[in-house]
């Protein structure tokens, strides 16, 4: 539980952090909340020579609303999201997800950006970001680019953030309160075995359903979504739609849940998430 030796640098601005990254290349790692990086370093699964601490860059530590869009700084902690009055009003799904993460210590340190970049297949944020069609603003040596949630989560522990880049902001639309996140947690780690975020637009009769924990990366349950497109979301229609929540998916399997059980839980949780979202309207 002792990491290999490393140097520590604190960046005071985004540009400085990008310069440091450019200078140290593959030897460097960005440190945000440290709640994924440091455990990996302690187990020596990750052995960066330089750790660049970006956690005090104030600009990336914010939640702002402009024209129906909300910009969340990558360094915003889970707790800050959980307790944000703005988000509770404008996008209550996010505080709900934040509250389901880890324990108080984890929520106080862990950041939404770090969590998304880390792209843990059992992380909670990917489900919410997919369901909200979030956009990820990424800074790099040649300026910024924006990546849609669907393209952001690439594979197990791989996001679209390239070496040398830093995630700046996550943009989500303001959303009605007809949204919900339900998580079936792995008993030991507390991460999701099956976490489902559902966003229901009752007027348009559209739903967005995203599932995390079940497959190598979080996914949109498109079968479930199309089954409810233009349909009144009732207990019956939801149950039928939820049956499709793991269609075409290759579920993970481990000692905590076999592939069968994971797929089953995806269906159960999809039903529950949809029902919870609808009931809030």
């Amino acid at each position: 539980m002792i990491p290999a030796a490393f140097d520590y640098v604190r960046a005071s601005s985004l540009n400085e952090a990008l310069d440091l990254l450019a200078k140290h290349g593959d030897d460097a790692k960005i440190l945000a909340g440290g709640h994924s990086l440091i455990p990996a370093m302690k187990l020596r699964l990750s052995q960066p020579k330089v750790v660049i601490d970006i956690s005090r860059i104030a600009d990336l530590h914010s939640v702002n609303q402009q024209n129906g869009k909300i910009a969340i700084g990558a360094l915003t902690t889970h707790y800050e999201i959980e307790s944000s009055d703005l988000l509770k009003r404008a996008c209550p799904l996010l505080p709900e997800v934040a509250g389901s993460i880890g324990d108080v210590q984890v929520r106080n340190k862990g950041t939404v950006g770090g969590s998304c970049v880390h792209a843990d297949p059992a992380g909670d944020w990917p489900a919410a970001m997919l369901a909200l069609d979030a956009e990820f603003e990424i800074a790099g040596p040649n300026g910024s680019r924006t990546v849609a949630a669907n393209d952001f989560f690439v594979d197990i522990l791989t996001s679209a953030v390239e070496p040398g880049e830093i995630l700046k902001f996550i943009h989500v639309p303001a959303t009605a309160n007809t949204a919900a996140y339900v998580k079936f947690a792995q008993k030991a780690s507390g991460f999701a075995i099956a976490g489902v975020a559902a966003v229901v637009d009752k007027t348009k009769k559209e739903v967005a359903v995203a599932v995390t924990g079940v497959a190598a990366k979080a996914y949109r349950a498109s079968g479930t979504e199309s089954s409810l497109r233009g349909v009144e979301p009732t207990a019956d229609s939801i149950a039928t739609a939820a049956e499709k929540a793991a269609d075409g998916i290759d579920p993970l399997s481990d000692i905590h849940a076999s592939a069968d059980f994971r797929a089953h839980l995806a269906r159960v949780q999809a039903k529950r998430a949809l029902w919870a979202a609808v009931s809030r309207g």
């Binding site: 792995q186 008993k187 030991a188 780690s189 000692i255 905590h256």
Partner: peptide, 11 residues
């Protein structure tokens, strides 16, 4: 050993 830490051994 698949339950070698608290990530996998539930208490």
């Amino acid at each position: 050993l698949l339950t070698g830490e608290f990530m996998d051994y539930a208490i």
